[in-house]
Amino acid sequence: MRIADTFNLVDFANTTVCLLAALALGTLIGAERQYRQRSAGLRTNVLVALGAAAFVDLAVRMAGVDGGVRVLAYVVSGIGFLGAGAIMKEGFNVRGLNTAATLWCSAAVGGCAGSGYLAEAALLTVLIISGNTLLRPLVNAINRIPFDERATEANYEVRLTVAADSVAQVRESLVDHLERAHYPVASVETEDPSENDQTVEVVASLVSTSINPEELDAVLNHLEKVHGISHATWEMHVKN
């Protein structure tokens, strides 16, 4: 019988210890996720850790260390598909990245356990839980820091409301003012005229950089004094 040929009490005991360790460590990670009411909670993290451990343990028993290494590579890439299912995009917001990363780490714990590196698996579990809990106050503290445009790389647009017969002159003046303030212009576009066809919007996109809001406001104050410009403003679009 095939079972009689493959069964070895020592190997079976080793597999049992490895899988139980993966089960226990996956439970610790999943319990924290379940408490936080994340989409990938207790059972998901346990199954990820247990599955990774089982695949690696089986590969090691069948093909030795080289087989285990090959399966580990497949586990790393395969768990990415599972993590992608936890990521959701809502408008400009992306949710589930931390959940996907936790699943990835749970697979790493299972891989360590399945390879017999139980101490490393336990250490990794402690670090994962610490990252999801102890770093939370730091994240909240950073999020409460007032937003500083000068420290943020973003896309900036300078928008001018211009008399239709002054567009060419205003475009040159706009580029000149911005470049003298060391804000190079990537492009200048003219949007469709307003309903009365007497004014148009001239939009200058700045080269991606960090700006000083006070400096840019000063540039716009000078621009509003240029003949043909009735209104000047700027907008920021933060990169995702």
Rank of each mutant, 00 (worst) to 15 (best):
R2H: 06
V10R: 15
F12R: 07
F12Y: 05
A13R: 11
A13S: 13
N14F: 08
T15C: 09
L19A: 08
L20D: 09
L25E: 08
L25R: 04
T27K: 07
T27A: 15
T27W: 13
A31N: 13
R33A: 02
R33L: 01
Q37I: 00
V48Y: 07
A49C: 07
L58A: 11
A73M: 08
S77E: 08
L82V: 10
L82P: 04
G83V: 01
G85N: 05
G85D: 01
L97M: 07
T99C: 08
A107D: 01
A108I: 03
G114P: 07
L118K: 09
E120T: 00
A122L: 06
T125Q: 14
L127P: 13
S130K: 02
T133L: 08
T133F: 01
L134V: 12
R144G: 03
I145L: 15
R150V: 00
R150Q: 06
E153F: 11
V167M: 01
V170Y: 02
V170G: 03
S173G: 11
H177K: 05
V185T: 12
V188C: 14
D192A: 03
P193S: 12
N196C: 03
V200E: 15
E201Q: 12
V202I: 10
V203E: 01
S205H: 12
N212S: 14
A218N: 05
L220A: 09
G228F: 09
H231I: 07
E235A: 04
K239S: 10
